[in-house]
Nucleic acid binder design. Structure first.
Lengths: 210, 210
DNA sequence: GTTTAAATCAAACGTTTGTTTAATTTTGCT
DNA sequence: AGCAAAATTAAACAAACGTTTGATTTAAAC
């Protein structure tokens, strides 16, 4: 992956936020140029087109996700439930740390017509499933986890819960007595809340205890 | 809610599908008019504007959801876990039975700027939470359910899982040996799979057993 | 200092957008 | 049949869209 100048990075950052907040088609290149404080022509000049700009964002974030997955593959000394817990912690931390991009993913994965981006998304999800499945199945064969667990659905629950938390967080905030925290503090609070919930959920269904 | 003519219903149906598949801004009124086989002007003539068309779809579906909630309120003879299971069954059946609309909801709930539609969505989710919370808390006080369960997060998991299943179903299909079913059969198969998974999950975390 | 390439800009390009107009056809009523 | 309202149409509308142009400024190399 090439390096990007400050100006290019500023465009990427603004575009990511606006695509997340208003959708790809709901955001004009003029909006992006204005908020990033650059001339409209610079977007085509740097990235080729609006479509390629989105693709660039995806490649940028996806590369990081690939690294992330590979790092997860390397802790082999833990026992199954620890692995699962570590995996949940890292997933939640990662995804709630790049909420704008996760918003874009939520939107793009809904598009029905085939596109390189859509393919990338499901390929990545497949890799994450490939990360989790062997942990579960090996523990099942060792008699540590219960057998009748639908691993694909469990993964769907993991992604789905986190993706649902992102737009719901403002509602969740007012109902959880965390109104006196600033934004960064609340984000950490939320990460912990989601993580705790998912770990309980996984432990309960995999081992029937807390 | 007024009645709609066949032509109006055909526009609503086509628009719902296209909005779900391509997003609101990704769908032009010309696309809708062409697929519904009506003149472009009829959309403004009937619904006022493209925005109001989306609003009409929402009001139409939301009214049904309200009815749905009120029906759920009426089974009072079951015990808590039965209530939860019935609730899950009905939710899954309802939401997977109107997938196009759920797609639109998934998209619209991501919009950051306030809108009447956004408000409607979260109001409805609040009502569904209000449906589930008393069941859980009453069962907790009666000592039937475990206490340290985050009900809001559990509801988020319920919605999130179903919303995640909708775009993921093509992937889930190939990995579950259900390739020989036709579309309607697979939909029923999927409903059952999701429902079963969620009921196990809820039972496990609420009662620590299957 | 001159030259060459990259970066930046305002302006214009041709489409496509959602909406409206004004004329015409269809419908329902007496 | 005759009339008024509703439905339908092709055409036109201005605005916004993504992209490109061509001129100008900045930067780097020699």
């Amino acid at each position: 992956m090439e390096e990007y100048s400050e100006k290019q990075l500023s465009i990427l950052k603004v575009a990511e936020r606006l695509f997340a907040d208003q959708g790809f088609h709901g955001t004009s290149v003029r909006d992006i140029a204005q908020e990033a404080d650059v001339n409209i022509a610079m977007i085509s000049y740097y990235f080729g087109s609006k479509d390629k700009l989105l693709e660039t964002i995806f490649k940028y974030r996806m590369e990081a996700s690939r690294k992330f997955i590979n790092e997860l593959l390397e802790n082999d000394t833990m026992e199954p439930l620890e692995k699962i817990n570590s995996l949940i912690d890292r997933f939640v931390n990662k995804m709630l740390g790049e909420q704008y991009f996760q918003c874009i993913m939520s939107r793009e994965q809904l598009n029905s017509q085939q596109s390189p981006i859509r393919d990338l998304i499901w390929q990545l999800k497949g890799e994450m499933l490939g990360l989790m499945r062997p942990i579960v199945t090996q523990a099942q064969e060792a008699g540590i986890f219960y057998k009748d667990v639908d691993v694909e659905m469990l993964m769907t629950t993991l992604f789905g819960t986190i993706h649902q938390v992102i737009p719901a967080q403002h509602i969740l905030r007012s109902s959880s007595g965390a109104t006196d925290l600033n934004d960064d503090e609340y984000r950490e609070f939320l990460k912990n809340r989601v993580s705790t919930h998912l770990k309980k959920l996984f432990k309960a269904i995999l081992k029937h205890e807390f």
